[in-house]
Computed example of a mutant assay.
Amino acid sequence: MIFCHRYSAKPILIFLLLCTSVTAYFMDSYHVIIDVGMIENIVETNLGEARDLFSLTLVLYVIFLGLLPSWFVWQVNITFKPVRQEIWGRLKLIASILLPLLVLGFMISASLQFISKRTQTNPVTF
């Protein structure tokens, strides 16, 4: 993981598991998609509105999709490499993602130039 470090990996994973268990409940129950507007509504919701949304199903989602996997994450022993190896591994990961994107960008750029030259020399007529 690019953003997780020795002391932050488990808390970040547990936080993500708990958040996704709650969002999975709302997406499954109310058939909504969580976007920026929905997050703004969550922040602006008062206690009375939030209390109406709680149910036994939400509790079950949080237990089975949030707390239980979080407990397994907490129990697992994550071994980290030395700092230099961690940084080198992350740089290789980033390079392996960016390099194909860069090559693809050059290929698209070259093909667009070829298409524009072809249409200048042999325009399509209708």
Rank of each mutant, 00 (worst) to 15 (best):
R6P: 00
A9I: 06
A9E: 01
L13A: 07
I14C: 01
I14D: 00
L16Q: 03
L16G: 02
L17P: 00
L17A: 02
L18K: 01
C19H: 11
T20P: 00
S21P: 04
V22W: 02
Y25I: 13
Y25H: 15
S29R: 15
Y30M: 15
V32N: 05
D35G: 12
V36W: 05
G37K: 11
I39E: 02
N41K: 07
T45K: 08
N46T: 02
G48P: 00
A50P: 01
D52Q: 06
T57I: 04
L60T: 02
L60Q: 12
L60C: 03
V62H: 08
F64L: 14
L65W: 10
L67M: 14
L68H: 02
S70V: 03
F72D: 14
V73A: 07
V73C: 08
V73N: 02
N77C: 03
I78F: 15
T79N: 10
F80H: 09
K81T: 05
P82R: 05
R84L: 13
R84W: 09
G89L: 05
G89N: 14
R90N: 13
L93R: 09
I94S: 07
S96E: 10
I97T: 15
L98K: 07
L99G: 04
L102Y: 12
L102R: 05
L104C: 13
M107D: 02
I108L: 12
S109R: 10
S111C: 01
L112I: 09
L112V: 11
I115D: 11
S116M: 12
K117M: 12
R118V: 05
T119R: 15
T121W: 03
T125Y: 14
